[in-house]
Design a protein around this nucleic acid. Structure first.
Lengths: 144, 144
DNA sequence: ACGAAGAAAGTCAAATAAAGTCAAATAGGA
DNA sequence: TCCTATTTGACTTTATTTGACTTTCTTCGT
C-alpha cells in the first residue's frame, strides 16, 4: 500500500499542526515543495483537497516576498444540534461558559453578534443561522 | 514565523503608537530607514500599505527641512468597509486582534464560525452575513 | 525680502520573491 | 477499460525591495 506524495505531504502538515501550540502553522509553499522534491503547485493541491473548511481547517495565505500559507485546525463534529432556536443556542453558549469551555469574553461576543446579525433575517434564515453557529461552535470546541 | 522587512517596520511603528500617550507618533522617514538599514521609500511603502484609513490610521506628512510623517490611530468602524466580503471581514478581525482589541481566541473562533455558517449560503446572503457580523462586532467592541 | 541651496518626503517603475491557476499528462483502482 | 486522483509545469497575480528622479519645505546669504 504505497502512499502517494500528496498523502505524505498531508501527513507531514498534520504532524506539524499537532505539535503546534495554537493548532495553527505557517509554512512556505516553496520550502515544503523543496522538502518533498516536488513542484510548489503540488503543495497547493494538497492544501486545497485536504485542508478544506469542511474537514475542519481554515487556510489563509499571502503571496510575494516572505509569503506564507497559514493553516488552522478546528475539529469536526457531527451535527447534534440540528433543531436549534435562539433560546437553545443561548442556553448552549451559557452552558459552555459555565463549564469554562468557552471564556466569557468569547461567549458574550458571540451572543451579541449572533443576535445582532439575525435581527433582520426571516424565521427560516434565522433558524438556519442558529444551527450553523451551534454546529460551528461545537466543531470549534471539539465537542462530540 | 519569518517576517519580511515590511512586517518588521510595521510592528515597530505599531509598538511606538501603542506606547504613545495620544496614539499618535511623528517619525522621520530617513531616520527610520536608517534604523532598519533600508531605503527611505521602503518606509513609504509600509506606511502606504499598512497604515491606511481602512485599517484605522490617519497619516499626514511634511516634506523639506524638519519634515516628518505623523501617524494617528483611531478606532475603526465597520462602516469603513462599506461592501464587506469575506476577505475584508477577515482583515478586519485580524486587524482587531493585532490591536489587541479582540483576543486571538475569540478572533479565531469568530473566523471559524462565520466561515462555517456562511458555507451553505448563496452569495447574497453570505455578503449580508459578513456585513452583519462586521457591524455587530464593531458594536460589541464599542467602535464608532 | 528674495532666491538659491539643501533637506526631507513622495512617486514610480524595475527587479525579485512567493503563492495561485489551470490544464495536460500520468497513475491507480473498480 | 474508464474514471478519478495525482503530478507537473507554464503562466498569472500579488507583495516586497530598491533606486533614480521629483516635489515641497526650510534656511541662509545677500
Amino acid at each position: 500500500m504505497k502512499r502517494s506524495l500528496a498523502d505524505r505531504i498531508e501527513q507531514y502538515i498534520k504532524v506539524l499542526i499537532d505539535r503546534s501550540e495554537e493548532k495553527q502553522i505557517e509554512i512556505q509553499r516553496a520550502e515544503l515543495a523543496e522538502t518533498f522534491c516536488c513542484v510548489p503547485s503540488q503543495v497547493t493541491y494538497v492544501i486545497s483537497t485536504r485542508f478544506q473548511e469542511k474537514y475542519g481547517y481554515l487556510t489563509e495565505s499571502r503571496r510575494g516576498g516572505k509569503g506564507f500559507v497559514r493553516i488552522t485546525r478546528f475539529t469536526i463534529s457531527s451535527d447534534i444540534y440540528t433543531i436549534m432556536d435562539g433560546d437553545k443556542l443561548f442556553d448552549f453558549v451559557n452552558e459552555l461558559m459555565g463549564k469554562k469551555m468557552l471564556d466569557s469574553e468569547s461567549g458574550n461576543m458571540l451572543k451579541h453578534i449572533v443576535l445582532s446579525a439575525s435581527s433582520d433575517l426571516d424565521d427560516e434564515q434565522r433558524k438556519h443561522l442558529y444551527n450553523s453557529v451551534a454546529r460551528a461552535l461545537s466543531e470549534y470546541l471539539n465537542l462530540n
